[in-house]
């Protein structure tokens, strides 16, 4: 359980600090597959439920979403580099500081050892996802940031023991999948009309 959490955290940090898009998507896919093992590690629930959740997680987060992102990057001819408003150095330092803040915050939640680690790792992913969404320039990297954020929430929720009935859990996956799918479609459409994927230049709407 702890190894899994640490791996998830390391993959998340890799996505957050790398300046290349494809490796980031690969790490994101691996993270999605590993997240699928979380319900299996929880021995309390029924095995049917765990198996369904595992399949849904791997299917949506490990396969479908990375596939959409890969397709978008290759079809749209988006360059290999992430462009960021802050330097790589500043990015690494900020991510480290956010991780520290997340661990400090979670030490006050009163969770037990491995759950505390899980919650802190989840919170780190949430923070770094938000950081990516605010500092990265390309539309595809904002979507990657959003998926990191969602993965963080998933991990955080699993660690703090929130469980819902199967229809609700599946509804959550469906929502996430449709959201990323729609973002992918919009990326194509925006690319066609704007011929660039730089969100800095998308600001015709203002007061």
């Amino acid at each position: 359980m702890n190894t899994l959490t640490v791996l998830l955290l390391l993959l998340g940090i890799h996505v957050a600090v790398t300046d290349r898009i494809r490796p980031a998507i690969r790490s994101l896919a691996l993270q999605g597959i590993l997240l699928g093992f979380l319900p299996l590690a929880d021995s309390a629930g029924s095995s049917w439920r765990a198996a369904t959740l595992c399949l849904a997680t791997v299917g949506v987060k490990g396969i479908a979403i990375p596939a959409i992102l890969t397709r978008a990057t290759s079809r749209l001819g988006i360059g290999q580099e992430f462009e960021s408003l802050i330097s790589t150095k500043a990015n690494i330092l900020t991510t480290g500081a956010l991780a520290l803040a997340a661990f400090l915050a979670c030490s006050r939640f009163g969770l037990s050892g491995s759950d505390e680690l899980g919650a802190a790792a989840g919170l780190t992913l949430i923070f770094s996802g938000l950081l990516m969404m605010t500092t990265r320039v390309k539309a595809v990297s904002q979507v990657i940031g959003f998926v990191v954020l969602e993965n963080g929430i998933f991990l955080f929720g699993a660690a703090s023991g929130s469980e819902f009935t199967l229809p609700i859990e599946l509804g959550i996956f469906l929502d996430l999948f449709v959201a990323v799918f729609l973002m992918g479609i919009l990326m194509f459409k925006i690319h066609r009309t704007f011929t660039h994927m730089d969100v800095r230049k998308i600001h015709t709407l203002k007061d």
């Binding site: 949430i126 938000l130 969404m133 539309a139 904002q142 959003f146 954020l149 969602e150 929430i153 955080f156 929720g157 703090s160 929130s162 959550i172 959201a179 729609l182 973002m183 919009l186 459409k189 925006i190 009309t193 704007f194 969100v199 998308i202 600001h203 015709t204 709407l205």
Partner: peptide, 23 residues
């Protein structure tokens, strides 16, 4: 499209916060 992009991203993140609230 610009409006829809903003809408989708900002509201999805907002709603993600609400999910933290549920946790």
């Amino acid at each position: 499209m610009e409006a829809a992009w903003k809408y989708l991203l900002i509201c999805s993140v907002g709603i993600a916060f609400a999910f933290l609230g549920i946790i």
